[in-house]
Amino acid sequence: MTGSVPSRHRDIADDLRQQITTGRIQPGERLPSEADLADRYKVSTPTLRSALAALQGEGLVEKIHGKGNFVRRPLRKIMYVGGWGTLDPWTAAEAALRVTVRTTTVQAHGHLTTLLNVPTGSPAVEFSCLSFEEASPHGLARIYLPRDLVPAGVLDDESTQREEVKRFAVLSPAPAAIRETVCARLATPDEASALRIGSTVPVLAITRTATDFAGRVVEAALLAFPGDRIDAVFSTHHMIDERQPQG
């Protein structure tokens, strides 16, 4: 009897998975309520939720707060262009992709002091950006600039530079160098919550820093994309030091 609950939630997940993969339940379709599903399968709500959690972790189902559980639509991939540090301008400009931006003034602590190479407590501005395709999150970016380096007007909602923010782009004018560290790892709890993915789903994580010609870090960014929703392309660019006379 001790193994009945675990096997039961696996049986439910298997049944729902089959219905989804065979098309009996269509992409974008809302599943019955948790109470209705629990009644249908004759199980407790916690057991039913364990089954749904397994499907959410596989990326087949996503739970939208206040609306219910939905079969996840196959999402087209977007492209991150390394070196320039931006979402591809064509995919980023498509109407289906929208980005929410929240701006906050913060004090640098912990990892952020290392990224920006500033003393603890130094003021910085955080741009927290979340991209969506329809109702499904596509990518998360947290871009940090030292407060004294924030370009004029970028904090205004109507600023033309707001479009750069929405492309997860480097905001600092003409940095001398951009360094990007890329790794695949499991999502953090905050990332899993924001991107509505399971904690076992891998993300492509990019840590980006931009420096000026004096070596000062002028911007740092932490980006995370579910692994099945992103392609990253990196090209080599020759940066020109505008201070040097050109022959």
Rank of each mutant, 00 (worst) to 15 (best):
F70S: 03
R24W: 06
A13L: 02
E180A: 15
E34C: 07
E58M: 12
R229M: 03
L204E: 02
Q246A: 12
P226H: 09
E180S: 06
L16G: 01
P46R: 10
G247M: 05
P46F: 09
S33C: 01
L75Y: 00
A35K: 00
A210C: 13
E163W: 01
V217H: 12
L55D: 08
M79C: 04
W84S: 04
V150P: 07
S7M: 11
I178D: 07
F234P: 01
L112C: 09
M1I: 05
I78Q: 00
E133R: 13
G28N: 09
E126D: 11
V233C: 04
T113A: 15
R167F: 03
A93H: 12
R17A: 10
E62M: 13
V217S: 10
G66C: 02
E134I: 02
I240F: 10
L204M: 06
I25Y: 07
E242G: 05
V81H: 02
W84T: 12
S172C: 01
P89D: 01
V61L: 14
A108H: 13
L195M: 07
T105I: 11
I20G: 11
V125L: 15
S50G: 04
L222R: 14
V170R: 01
L149R: 15
I78K: 00
A108C: 15
L60V: 06
T160Q: 11
G139T: 02
A210L: 00
V154Q: 07
I197D: 00
P137V: 14
V106T: 15
A108V: 09
L223P: 12
N69D: 12
V170M: 07
L31V: 05
D212E: 03
R216E: 07
R229G: 02
R179M: 07
L130Q: 12
I64M: 12
S172V: 13
Q19N: 15
P173C: 13
G68F: 09
S159H: 04
C129G: 01
A54D: 06
K63D: 09
L195N: 03
E34Y: 00
R73N: 08
H65Y: 15
I178T: 12
G23A: 11
A95G: 04
R179V: 12
V125Q: 14
G23C: 07
W84L: 10
A177V: 13
I12Y: 00
A51L: 08
P146L: 07
S44T: 15
W90S: 09
A224D: 13
D14N: 14
L223T: 08
V125C: 08
A232Q: 08
S172D: 12
T211Q: 15
R40Q: 08
V165N: 08
S44N: 02
A35G: 00
D14I: 04
E163R: 08
S136E: 00
P27E: 03
L37A: 05
D241T: 00
P123Y: 00
T100Q: 14
A54F: 01
T236Y: 10
E126C: 13
P226S: 10
I197Y: 04
T160G: 06
R162Q: 13
R162G: 09
R10V: 14
G59Y: 08
T188R: 03
G28K: 05
E94N: 04
L204V: 10
F213Y: 01
V5K: 14
P74H: 01
V182H: 10
G139H: 03
V43G: 12
T120K: 08
I197Q: 06
H237I: 13
L87V: 12
V118Q: 10
L171N: 03
Q18R: 06
Q107C: 01
L116V: 10
R243M: 02
H237K: 11
L31D: 13
